[in-house]
């Protein structure tokens, strides 16, 4: 039923259909980048693609919104 993605090399379980952001949040990972001026931690805030707080790099691509991006088996996520 569930599959895994890796977050900085660590496996995180995903229920099919979950967003990357939801999977991370469920695994207790609540921030995955820092802001460019103050180095403040950021994770999910609006949860619906509006705020861009949850930007994350998946499979080496440029940052995308974790709340909109559906997790796929084998996705490799890197946090900053």
């Amino acid at each position: 039923m569930t599959f895994h993605i890796t977050v900085d090399g660590r496996p995180v379980p995903v229920v099919p259909g979950q967003s990357i952001g939801a999977a991370l949040h469920a695994a207790g990972v609540r921030s995955w980048r820092t802001t460019r001026f103050g180095g403040r931690p950021r994770g999910l805030f609006c949860g619906i693609g509006v705020c861009f707080d949850c930007l994350i790099s998946v499979n080496g691509r440029p940052p995308e919104r974790a709340c909109l991006l559906e997790a796929e088996p084998g996705d490799e996520v890197t946090t900053a």
């Binding site: 979950q18 952001g21 805030f45 609006c46 949860g47 619906i48």
Partner: peptide
Amino acid sequence: DLPGVLTAGGAQALLKGGGVLA
């Protein structure tokens, strides 16, 4: 802006869309 602070709709979306408790 601390992680763990979400909009009400964000908490709702996590639950409805991913079955995840905020």
